[in-house]
Amino acid sequence: MNAKLSLQHVQKTFTDGDRTLTVLKDVSFDIFPGEFVAIVGPSGSGKSTMLSIAGALLSPSSGKLLLDGKNIADASEKERQLIRLHQIGFIFQSSHLLPYLTVKDQLMLMTRLSKESKKDAEQRAERLLTELGLRHRLHQYPERLSGGERQRVAIARAWMNEPDLILADEPTASLDTERGQHVIEQLAQQVKQQKRAAIMVTHDERMLAYCDRVITLEDGAVS
């Protein structure tokens, strides 16, 4: 089976004044379809940078980044934008929903950006939201939702364009344990059902139970 995402000897350095900071030294790993992988590690270990590179938000300084077998390490800004739109779904620490869109419109926005036909999209949006138990919230604005509900909308949004890869950056940070577990349970379920791949950066060890594999980063390298 081919890896969905493959990082090969990825290195990332930042220049800070006249100092050069190596955040990722040499990171290699593969993620396969249907796999839900957790990334753990102390603060400053490079987790977020790694996730940003995997999510085509940052380019690696060196090394290869294969998405579906294609190297996107040197992709242009425009190419990376299209990859983010079509192939990657992001879930952030806080839901980061747009305050002026209703729950359903948050999802419809994604299909508008990818210029997809509206009719299929509406059905999919409603199905996703129903699966995540948000059927009754379709036409409400984020301000009326609870934290858990907002995060579930963010998950639905990440799924909306049917990405190959879901990237979650501490998705439970703003939720209490019970809600957090519920959200992750649903995320894991979706990954399995649809044979997608997902990476979750987390500090919360209780969430690791839902993951197939745990990768530990320490000082910019897989340990």
């Binding site: 999510g55 938000l57 425009k78 934008q81 299209l82 990859i83 983010r84 739109l85 079509h86 990657i88 992001f90 952030f92 980061h96 747009l98 305050p99 994604m110 950006l113 990818s114 949004r157 990440a158 364009n161």
Partner: peptide, 16 residues
Amino acid sequence: LNQFGIMKAIGSPVSV
């Protein structure tokens, strides 16, 4: 700005 950043992160082109 935060909203615009999120939009960019989830794949919105600057033109939109």
